[in-house]
């Protein structure tokens, strides 16, 4: 058993305190707890697996060195704020030196359809359908403005509360509401245009 697994059972507050005292195992337990969320946020924001991987690793290193600045509250909101800032920095850098066109994202994301999540008992058709749906949603989310996309990801993908989003994005609660509402409305309109690609159960204009 790895040492960090020994502390992984402890509650988050205890792990954070331990990490703040320099206990790397405690921090690694926190990493295991949040790395999926961190990576997904970075992936959806940056639209590139390699960039997301780098941003995730760098974010954890930065978080470890900045642990003394954490004064309580939601640890994951604090952690995701570091990732979000790293993503914004990277996006600004990419805008200064664009290297990949937006048209490339769709193909890349199709190819990147993640095999890890394939359910062993899933039928091939179901897997294909789910991959197509993922590709469609990710492609659609990529069309949202960055702030709206961030709000949508945090709430609807990572299950953050509005307060946590406000803390992560460093904005007022009202701003969170409006950004999220605009993101959802935009997603609704975009998906309506491609309704035939959606599963019947998710059709926005169902028979019901």
């Amino acid at each position: 058993m790895e040492p960090w697994m020994a502390v992984a059972g402890g509650d988050e507050e205890k792990l954070v305190r331990g990490a703040q005292k320099g206990n790397l195992d405690a921090f690694n337990a926190l990493i295991l707890q949040y790395q999926t969320q961190v990576y997904n946020l970075a992936y959806q924001m940056l639209q590139d697996p390699a960039s997301a991987d780098d941003a995730t690793q760098e974010a954890f290193i930065s978080a470890y060195h900045g642990l003394e600045k954490f004064r309580g509250g939601s640890f994951r909101a604090w952690l995701l704020r570091i990732v979000a800032n790293a993503c914004y920095d990277e996006l600004r850098r990419q805008k200064r030196r664009p290297s990949v066109s937006l048209d490339d994202f769709g193909d890349e994301m199709d190819e990147e359809a993640n095999p890890h999540l394939a359910d062993g008992g899933e039928l091939p058709e179901e897997s294909l359908q789910r991959d197509e749906l993922r590709a469609l949603l990710e492609r659609t989310m990529a069309l949202l403005p960055e702030d709206q996309r961030m709000a949508l990801l945090l709430v609807d993908r990572l299950g953050f509360s509005y307060d946590e989003v406000a803390e992560t994005m460093q904005v007022q609660l009202g701003t969170v509401k409006s950004r999220l509402a605009r993101a959802r409305a935009r997603m609704r309109d975009l998906l309506l245009e491609e309704q035939e690609l959606l599963p019947v159960s998710y059709r926005l204009k169902g028979s019901d």
């Binding site: 990493i31 295991l32 790395q35 999926t36 969320q37 961190v38 990576y39 997904n40 992936y43 697996p49 991987d53 995730t56 690793q57 954890f60 993640n114 890890h116 999540l117 749906l133 993922r134 949603l137 989310m141 949508l152 609807d156 993908r157 990572l158 299950g159 997603m187 998906l191 959606l198 998710y202």
Partner: peptide
């Protein structure tokens, strides 16, 4: 629809 989509699995441990 957005919420139902499973998260991507992290490609490695960090």
């Amino acid at each position: 629809l957005v919420q139902a989509l499973p998260l991507r699995e992290a490609p490695r441990n960090y």
